[in-house]
Amino acid sequence: MTNLHNTPNLAHLNLVCVQSSLLLERILQTLRYRGFNVVNMNTLEINEQETEVNLLVKGQAKLTTLQKSLEGLVEVQQCYLTEDQAKLATLIEMGLPSIYSPPPSTPSSVLAAEGA
């Protein structure tokens, strides 16, 4: 019944955010607070208002809680999570998470709606 995992989770998070000079500070604090470390990070300006942030993170805590917390940040408009370890291995080999475009996974709000 507990959520504590014994093996570190590796995951890729793709965030679409409103531009803010203070954005990264908030994202990194959320990652650390929820028990994850950043393996790799990349940001890309989509347009004047929006920035894409790609994160490869590692940790033993619960990924869905991290995802929901990131979604709760005021600037974050979308947050997609990929846990597929084979894809992530390729991603690490390629070095830059930003060149990998993950398929939009099911947002947590839908999971909640499904009773997950």
Binding site: M1, N3, T65, K68, S69, E71, G72, S109, A112
Partner: peptide, 12 residues
């Protein structure tokens, strides 16, 4: 708060 759901107790 969505982040509270299934955070500690897995629920039905």
């Amino acid at each position: 708060d969505n982040s509270e759901l299934n955070k500690l107790r897995q629920v039905e």
